[in-house]
Design a protein around this nucleic acid. Structure first.
Length: 262
DNA sequence: CCTATAGCCTGACGGC
DNA sequence: TGCCGTCAGGCTATAG
């Protein structure tokens, strides 16, 4: 689930449910997911405080507390947030549950434990430490920066789009959609793509991310021209109706239409 | 330096 | 039904 559009949806969800509410208690069910912080430190940074603002960079969500610290959420492949009132609605793999004074709770669920929770003085430090590239929805992400990133890598374009050090936020699913919308085949070297097509790819990156955020990252709401809802074993191209092809690129399964993507 | 791969962890699914 | 292998939208460390 959690690529950039999903994490942006989580961020807005946290904003609309959990901001400015005093935290009474924090239960850490899986301390092994804490990175660089002890359960006691994390509890101390949260209990008695509230969340006052959020930020997202790539696939990372940051929530600032009234004490000034930032809680860092990463979701791995299976993470999500859920705001609920009755403890019976606590999600099945809640790794941390935050109780608010109003009686509601915010659960961080992460079935496969590939996510992480951290604490930082400011979010920029986390971005730097992880050497993340620009977020494609930030003003700093321009055609020039994108073109340079694609020129300097030797990887195939799908892998390049997924490289968080080149640009942050795109994963296996959305790289397929972006390449489909741009009409570019996933297996060609990023540096061999013409300037014109790099420009088209740049706009596809922005358009796909913006559009899918509007859809709250829910494939059922995606436009009919989108590949993602057809991205399965016997899926057909929504544009020409031919069989989609699947192939591994650096270990990840990619789907594409051999006739619409050159 | 670079890129591709194995491994982390858990659960769902298909084949035998 | 039960077991086993494979696969899944993440990242990192390591090998080549």
């Amino acid at each position: 689930m959690p690529e950039l559009p999903d994490v942006e949806t989580f961020r807005r969800y946290l904003d609309s449910t959990s901001l400015h509410q005093e935290i009474s208690k924090v239960a850490i069910h899986s301390p092994e997911l804490l990175e660089g912080v002890t359960p006691a430190e994390l509890k101390a940074a949260l209990e008695g405080k509230s969340f006052v603002s959020t930020h997202r960079h790539g696939k990372y969500l940051f929530a600032q507390t009234s004490g000034g610290k930032w809680v860092v959420f990463h979701f791995g492949m299976t993470g999500f947030l859920k705001y609920f009132e009755d403890m019976e609605e606590e999600p099945p793999h809640a790794r941390m549950t935050i109780d608010f004074l109003n009686g509601w709770h915010l659960g961080y669920d992460c079935q496969r434990k590939l996510g992480e929770i951290g604490l930082a003085d400011d979010w920029q430090k986390v971005v730097e430490a992880r050497k993340m590239g620009p977020d494609p929805l930030d003003p700093g992400f321009t055609l020039d920066t994108f073109g340079e990133a694609m020129r300097k890598t030797r990887a195939v374009v799908k892998s390049a789009l997924m490289n968080q050090r080149l640009l942050a936020g795109i994963g296996n699913i959305y790289s397929d959609e972006i390449l489909f919308q741009a009409g570019i085949q996933p297996g060609i070297k990023a540096k061999d793509i013409s300037k014109d097509r790099i420009e088209r790819l740049f706009y596809s990156v922005k358009e796909v991310l913006e559009e899918t955020i509007k859809c709250k990252a829910d494939p059922e709401r995606f436009p009919p021209s989108y590949l993602i809802p057809h991205r399965h074993g016997d899926g057909k191209c929504p544009r020409c109706g031919n069989d989609l092809q699947q192939k591994k690129f650096s270990g990840r399964t990619g789907f594409f239409c051999p006739s619409c993507q050159a």
